[in-house]
């Protein structure tokens, strides 16, 4: 897991956003991280975004949840499954946590809220480039509730592959601990002080939590589909 300060190269970045002004704002925010405007591609629909992802395989894709020809969540899910190397970050206006949670479960490693100041967005994207992910207390609480609702089975050798996968998706003690702190509003620095970990490590843990969330969602979906006879 790339969580130890080595930056992920942001040399090909895609913005999927239909609003021109937001496109410009995001490009401006990204410029600091990617260096050149040439590294930033813009798509304004799901269809064009898929084409561009397939052709240029970007390192990072910022995906608006509300797109004219489809759902950003679907695009995030598609990218996660077909281009696993592309990191996706969801964009939403006020960040209703249902939508954010859905994005995380689709495979996004974070979310940006348009309401935030540019500086905050830059800080968030820096965190993503370091290999981490962003989280806030409401999302942490929702993830905790979600995890508690679907208890994991105890490990046994005869466990089905699917159940094993689910087991892999179980949060570690450290991860739950971090989520608990986040839910109480502690900053990453405070959590780092409390746990004795570096704040970058904590951002890595967050990313790992999101990954597990996505895995859980997928296996849950497969499980449900199988139980309904669709697979």
């Amino acid at each position: 897991m790339a969580s130890t300060g080595d930056h992920i190269a942001f040399d090909r970045v895609l913005i999927v956003e239909d609003d021109a002004r937001t496109q410009r704002r995001l490009a401006q925010v990204l410029l600091e991280l990617v260096g050149s405007i040439d590294n930033i591609a813009v798509a304004d629909s799901v269809a064009s975004a898929k084409t561009m992802v397939s052709s240029s395989a970007p390192n990072l894709a910022l995906v608006d949840i509300g797109l004219p020809d489809g759902n950003g969540l679907e695009l995030i899910s598609w990218i996660d499954q077909h281009h696993g190397d592309t990191i996706t970050v969801a964009i939403s206006a006020w960040g209703h946590e249902e939508v954010v949670l859905a994005a995380l479960r689709s495979g996004a490693v974070g979310y940006l809220m348009k309401e935030r100041d540019d500086a905050e967005l830059v800080a968030a994207l820096h965190s993503v480039r370091r290999g981490g992910a962003l989280i806030d207390p409401l999302i942490a609480r929702r993830i905790l509730a979600f995890v508690q609702l679907s208890p994991t089975e105890p490990f046994t050798p005869t466990l089905s592959a699917q159940a094993q996968k689910r087991n892999e998706a179980a949060l570690s003690e450290r991860e739950s601990e971090i989520l608990q702190f986040v839910a109480q509003g502690f900053s990453n620095r405070e959590i780092a002080d409390l746990t004795g970990l570096s704040r970058f490590t904590i951002e890595g843990y967050t990313k790992s939590i999101y990954r597990k969330l996505a895995v859980r969602s997928r296996t849950a979906a497969v499980f449900e589909a199988k139980s309904m006879g669709l697979l």
Binding site: A123, D136, P137, R141, A183, Q184, G185, F186, S187
Partner: peptide, 16 residues
């Protein structure tokens, strides 16, 4: 729980 989002947001802002 109600203070947590504010605390989180302002921690980030002040840090920035």
């Amino acid at each position: 729980g109600q203070i947590a989002p504010l605390r989180h947001r302002w921690s980030q802002r002040l840090e920035a």
